[in-house]
Design a protein around this nucleic acid. Sequence first.
DNA 1: AATCGCTATATTTGACAACACATAACGAAG
DNA 2: CTTCGTTATGTGTTGTCAAATATAGCGATT
Lengths: 112, 112
Amino acid sequence: MDYKIKSRIWIEADGEILLGEGRVSLLKAIDETGSLSKAAKSIGMSYKKAWSLIDAVNKRAEKPVTSSSIGGKGGGGAELTEYGKSLVETFETINENCWKFLDHQIKQSKLK
Amino acid sequence: MDYKIKSRIWIEADGEILLGEGRVSLLKAIDETGSLSKAAKSIGMSYKKAWSLIDAVNKRAEKPVTSSSIGGKGGGGAELTEYGKSLVETFETINENCWKFLDHQIKQSKLK
DNA sequence: AATCGCTATATTTGACAACACATAACGAAG
DNA sequence: CTTCGTTATGTGTTGTCAAATATAGCGATT
């Protein structure tokens, strides 16, 4: 039997979720597409849900993670702030380290 | 702002969840109470849900994690097998190690 | 053979989250 | 001043998952 160990990490601020895997992948999609609606579509999420998530993140984080413009050329758009980019990078690094750590842990246990 | 990092780990067998935090706390309650129904009540879980979880664990694990008796003195009961006890112990150890690891990780990051 | 407390399982009900849909606002550009 | 694509919100509906409810079966004890 092959047991596998999996994990999910998230960052909380004021006891509420700030960043999890879903929000991070959304932020990455915004960085790639330059638009919230395109980002949502690219990861199969409704625009409304994506907007709600980003709104929550921006309100809870120390500084906004995205900046957006309404109207104008192309109708508007959204992009990550420098702070947002650093948050995403930090999250992903810690997440990968966690996977490696757990992999090591289960190999050391009796479960194999 | 104090960011906190949290995690949830689980063990999979055949691509399906074998053990997570909820199941482990249920197993511990069974160990303490000697009965599935009392264990469920003690952690505020319905009997049906508790039974379903234990049933799934027993079917997917290499060996059963509980042994139960129906009828007889006291109406029956349930207790952890030796294998079940070792699984719980392993899970909790790895989980605690994971928390410590993540705590260390976030202190090393820029987020503090 | 009747009782008791538990395991074992099906079915029905209800709450809550996800989702689709609708609409307003905005500002550059033609 | 109309069009366009986007952000920004509200609302009603649907689908899913958990909780409640119901019931059968078991075996030691009396």
